[in-house]
């Protein structure tokens, strides 16, 4: 029970009483005691209770509580670490899969390009072969036709020559009355024909 004296104008004194700390207990037992020894000197009962409770607390913490909590923390950190490692391993696996897939895709793509190239080359070769074949055919046919034409022309020329020979020898026979020498006639015809042609 604390007390304070309030002097108003130094005449009247009002005594105000306080219940600073033991308001909740309401009993005199929790209230401070009066004057005693030096306030700094430790009191035996406080020392004993403080030391006792601290030592019990320390023993409990040292032997059971802190190691248990610490172990739990360490195990959780380890499990988190393991999860991290597992996650990074999974990620690395997935990345390897992706790389493998991409390399396979690239391989297939290059294979396809290669096949396309060979097919194109084959096609080119075949086409040029066919073209050459057709060209050769056309050339041979043209040569044959030309030969035929030349042959026909020669035959016609021969016929003309023989006809002219006959006509000439007949005309000569009629005109001269002598059958001319065939060799001379044909030579003359030959000359005439060549002269007319040129």
């Amino acid at each position: 029970m604390l007390t304070a004296f309030v002097n108003i104008n130094s005449f009247s004194q009002v005594r105000v009483s306080f219940d600073v700390v033991s308001a909740e207990t309401g009993s005199e037992e929790g209230a401070p005691v009066g004057p005693g020894p030096n306030p700094i000197s430790p009191e035996m009962k406080e020392l004993v209770w403080g030391a006792g409770s601290f030592i019990v607390f320390l023993i409990l913490m040292r032997l059971f509580l802190v190691p248990k909590v610490r172990k739990g923390m360490a195990s959780r950190y380890e499990s988190i670490q393991a999860d991290h490692e597992y996650a990074s391993a999974t990620r690395a696996g997935a990345q390897a899969d992706v790389a493998r897939y991409e390399s396979a895709v690239a391989e297939i793509r290059s294979e396809a390009a290669r096949r396309l190239e060979t097919a194109r080359q084959t096609l080119d070769k075949e086409r040029s072969e066919k073209v050459a074949q057709v060209n050769a055919q056309i050339a041979s046919r043209r040569a044959a036709a030309e030969a035929e034409v030349a042959a026909a022309r020669a035959a016609a020329q021969g016929q003309i020559v023989s006809a002219v020979d006959a006509v000439t020898s007949r005309a000569t026979q009629i005109a001269v009355g002598v059958s001319p020498d065939a060799a001379i006639v044909s030579r003359a015809v030959q000359q005439a024909m060549e002269g007319s042609r040129s």
Binding site: T3, N7, I8, V21, G30, P37, E46, W49
Partner: peptide, 29 residues
């Protein structure tokens, strides 16, 4: 105007026993 008497310091610091041998400081500990 207002002079109030400060209680003796031991009244602020030393506590009666709640049960014999155990006061408020011991209880807090």
């Amino acid at each position: 105007i207002l002079s109030f008497e400060f209680p003796p310091i031991n009244e602020l610091l030393r506590w009666r026993d709640v049960v014999p041998g155990l006061n408020k400081v011991g209880l807090i500990a």
